[in-house]
Deep mutational scan, measured.
Amino acid sequence: KAKLLVLLYAFVATDADTICIGYHANNSTDTVDTILEKNVAVTHSVNLLEDSHNGKLCKLKGIAPLQLGKCNITGWLLGNPECDSLLPARSWSYIVETPNSENGACYPGDLIDYEELREQLSSVSSLERFEIFPKESSWPNHTFNGVTVSCSHRGKSSFYRNLLWLTKKGDSYPKLTNSYVNNKGKEVLVLWGVHHPSSSDEQQSLYSNGNAYVSVASSNYNRRFTPEIAARPKVRDQHGRMNYYWTLLEPGDTIIFEATGNLIAPWYAFALSRGFESGIITSNASMHECNTKCQTPQGAINSNLPFQNIHPVTIGECPKYVRSTKLRMVTGLRNIPSIQYRGLFGAIAGFIEGGWTGMIDGWYGYHHQNEQGSGYAADQKSTQNAINGITNKVNSVIEKMNTQFTAVGKEFNNLEKRMENLNKKVDDGFLDIWTYNAELLVLLENERTLDFHDLNVKNLYEKVKSQLKNNAKEIGNGCFEFYHKCDNECMESVRNGTYDYPKYSEESKLNR
């Protein structure tokens, strides 16, 4: 008799109507990190870190770059004969040098303040090359056809396309004075040089004057150069050297050249137009028929994500570079809930034993079982409120962090190594801060989002509990077992918050 009662009780308990509160689960393989956990499985997430590029040089917003090819900045601007293909260059979106560009200054020497000139050019998007001192009329008392084997072109001695090597005419090199007034309405880049012979005999042979000088002056520039005559090792078949100089001439300003020898005179100059998204990159990537809004030396990035880990040097509207390998923000729920887990921000989770793959029309909802059958029903209101809140948060985070910009490298010469090392340390410090901030932001927001979901499920549970009161009992896994019969209409009233407690209280009292 006792065995019969136990079996009867078990049958009745199993047959009781139930309603459970749960949440969506799926077959997603997404994982995120939080402050407290690593690799948390979630139903949905968004990636904030771009880690792919196309490996190509592309047009930037429809404008092609200027590819210097086998030449570098120095060779292009001075007019190395091997860089003749660059003479027609007028406009570009950015400038590309190759790491091993070999054609710079063909006659050995240095372009002074080269690093600063590169910085200036990094904001130039177009130029006009014009004859600042016409070759045939500007130097009537001097020979202007100086050439050298060091600047050979097609097997013949030649010289820079933008400079003139002035030497004596006959047996004399009379003092020369020439000036140019900038009437271009924009900055003009003027380049010139000073020749330093290897011996007094060479000085006399070329310029006749043993104590020659070169003077260059404008409103913002004033220097006097004296040739340094000295024996030097042979470089590119030359014992002599040429140093090259430049200045930016403001609109309306005048530049005056005065010399008694050794002047490498300007022939062509450049009127410059600035462009905020221009820059110089060093890259071996090849040019393709493609378009982008962000270019790196590795390749083009076409992404609206706020961060990238491809390269710190970028041109155009680019994500911020960070050292992170993963920045994924959760938008959905835990896919593998932890039992009795309390989140960092106070939300209680884990009283549900598992997510439901059968509930596909919402994030949170119900599963019921009664004599009429069983089924899932999503709670659309709480789901939609959660979707709206999380979507707004993700968009806000992306908008705040998605300050796209150009980031170019800084140039230092060989004598500025300590400054370069200090600059690298400062840049590394800023990069570490950006990386830390980005990672911390994602970790915190992921923790908040998961706790937010847990709290929403808990609130749904409490909503049902407050309606049923003692007409049902909690069975410990997020479910309630009714003390009365609850048909589909009754189940719907529980879900929509209109459950009639008094209607079922007498039946429940008897069954309790």
Results as ranks from 00 to 15, higher is better:
203 Q>I: 00
111 L>P: 00
147 V>L: 01
111 L>F: 13
182 N>D: 07
19 I>G: 03
236 R>W: 12
260 T>H: 07
21 I>T: 06
79 G>R: 01
212 A>N: 14
187 E>I: 05
182 N>S: 01
161 R>Q: 10
223 R>N: 13
208 S>C: 03
186 K>R: 15
204 Q>E: 15
208 S>F: 11
199 S>N: 12
5 L>I: 14
60 L>Q: 01
270 F>G: 01
31 T>C: 07
53 H>A: 11
172 S>G: 08
54 N>G: 10
116 E>K: 12
130 F>R: 02
262 N>Y: 02
259 A>D: 08
85 S>F: 11
111 L>S: 03
232 R>P: 02
250 E>Q: 13
222 N>R: 02
92 W>F: 15
90 R>W: 03
259 A>K: 08
2 A>P: 03
8 L>R: 08
94 Y>E: 02
268 Y>C: 07
193 G>N: 03
275 G>Q: 12
257 F>L: 15
2 A>R: 02
103 N>E: 15
202 E>Y: 05
97 E>G: 10
161 R>N: 04
213 Y>W: 06
131 E>M: 08
245 Y>S: 00
9 Y>Q: 07
155 G>T: 10
237 D>H: 10
269 A>Q: 04
153 H>F: 03
196 H>W: 04
101 S>F: 03
37 E>R: 13
7 L>A: 11
155 G>H: 06
219 S>C: 05
251 P>T: 02
166 L>E: 01
82 E>D: 12
68 L>S: 10
87 L>F: 07
19 I>Y: 09
57 L>T: 04
227 P>E: 00
9 Y>K: 15
35 I>R: 04
118 R>W: 12
157 S>L: 15
242 M>K: 04
186 K>L: 13
31 T>D: 00
248 L>D: 00
159 F>E: 03
106 C>R: 04
143 T>A: 08
37 E>L: 00
78 L>R: 11
147 V>G: 03
129 R>Y: 05
253 D>C: 06
91 S>I: 13
206 L>T: 05
171 D>E: 15
203 Q>M: 09
61 K>M: 04
15 D>R: 12
179 S>Q: 13
256 I>N: 08
247 T>I: 15
191 L>Q: 01
277 E>W: 04
43 T>G: 04
68 L>W: 09
65 P>C: 09
123 S>T: 07
281 I>Y: 08
130 F>P: 02
270 F>P: 00
100 N>W: 05
11 F>Y: 05
245 Y>W: 08
143 T>Y: 04
268 Y>V: 04
126 S>H: 00
128 E>Y: 12
210 G>F: 08
72 N>D: 14
261 G>F: 00
188 V>E: 02
226 T>S: 10
151 C>K: 11
29 T>I: 04
221 Y>Q: 02
158 S>M: 05
231 A>G: 08
178 N>A: 14
243 N>K: 10
82 E>H: 06
64 A>D: 09
74 T>V: 15
49 L>S: 11
4 L>M: 07
61 K>Y: 13
214 V>R: 02
124 V>I: 15
218 S>Y: 09
262 N>P: 03
131 E>I: 09
105 A>D: 01
